[in-house]
């Protein structure tokens, strides 16, 4: 695919509170269409900040300054007359914490559709809800209790509900912020499966600090460190033939960066007996 729906151009994000911190420093990345791009890096390296700046979620915060630009299919995201809500509809966002809105399971998925009036009749809405719940492999688990509060689902189910809610408004791009880090291994696996199935249809940007996850899911990998892009490449080259020394250190075992947040990658530490590509779900998330 040569189509590039989302790009950033010298994007910088600065927190201008008591202490000025430039969290993202002049980042220029392309996110190709129908591809899953992961942004990896240690905690505090600016991954989430970068992700939220892609669909203007920082607008709701005070003391955030943004320089450079993001463009969506060639149109600027910041320097534009298009209202922020419409931009956010086109660039969906799934937060790190599985979040159920205070409404029923059905209404959680219908939320965006109702806001935008994207349905013709009740039957049409019903059909859409089913479609998207099936898309995230949740339909069979909740079909008999669509009226129950969304918050009564398990965290893993809620995370898939979040994905369904985001997909329902038919975004061009889906931003996912460490969507498996709050989940138990089994739930994390099912969310990963869902993302894996969706990536052929959607442009997905996934922030993660788990290299195992990046390796399993990604087509493209961007390595962010202290707010700067150290290296970005397709997943194979990135892991097998990293160009930068810092990348080698980061994927190559215990890093000098932040050992609590970046535990040793199982596949990269020889003594781990069950390491390897096939290790199901990372246990380095908690």
């Amino acid at each position: 695919m040569t189509d590039i729906p989302l790009t950033t151009n010298q994007l910088s994000v600065t927190y201008t509170g008591d202490r000025e911190i430039e969290a993202v420093k002049g980042v220029s990345i392309d996110f190709p269409a129908n591809t899953l791009t992961t942004i990896i890096g240690p905690s505090g390296c600016g991954k989430s900040t970068l992700l939220k700046s892609l669909n203007r979620l920082h607008d709701i915060q005070e003391n955030v300054e943004i320089d450079g630009d993001v463009s969506l299919s060639g149109d600027s995201v910041y320097d534009t007359d298009v209202p922020a809500p419409e931009i956010r509809r086109r660039i969906g966002y799934v937060p790190q914490t599985p979040t159920a809105l205070p409404v029923s399971i059905y209404e959680n998925v219908a939320y965006g559709l109702r806001i935008h009036g994207d349905y013709e009749s009740k039957a049409d809405l019903d059909e859409k809800i089913e479609t998207y719940l099936r898309k995230v492999n949740l339909w069979d688990e909740v079909a008999d209790r669509l009226d129950a509060p969304g918050a009564e689902l398990s965290t893993g189910q809620i995370q898939r509900l979040c994905v369904a809610r985001s997909l329902a408004v038919e975004p061009d791009v889906l931003l996912c912020d460490e969507v498996t880090s709050a989940l138990d291994p089994v739930s994390a696996e099912s969310v990963e499966e869902t993302l894996g199935e969706l990536k052929s249809e959607y442009t997905i940007v996934l922030v993660t600090h788990s290299m195992a996850q990046a390796r399993r899911l990604a087509d493209e990998v961007v390595f962010l460190y202290l707010g700067e892009v150290v290296e970005s490449n397709d997943v194979r080259s990135f892991f097998e033939d990293p160009r930068e020394k810092r990348t080698k250190t980061f994927i190559g075992g215990p890093t000098p960066v932040d050992r609590d947040d970046v535990p040793a990658e199982p596949t990269a530490t020889p003594p781990t007996p069950d390491g390897g590509e096939g290790s199901t779900v990372d246990d380095d998330e908690r």
Partner: peptide, 28 residues
């Protein structure tokens, strides 16, 4: 939690829609 606001805004809701449909209920 801020995630409620981000979630609602993230599907394209306006601030007022977020307050009316999500925050007032959650804080109900």
């Amino acid at each position: 939690p801020d995630e409620l606001r981000e979630t609602s805004l993230g599907v394209g809701a306006t601030k007022f829609e977020t307050i009316r449909s999500v925050l007032l209920r959650a804080a109900g």
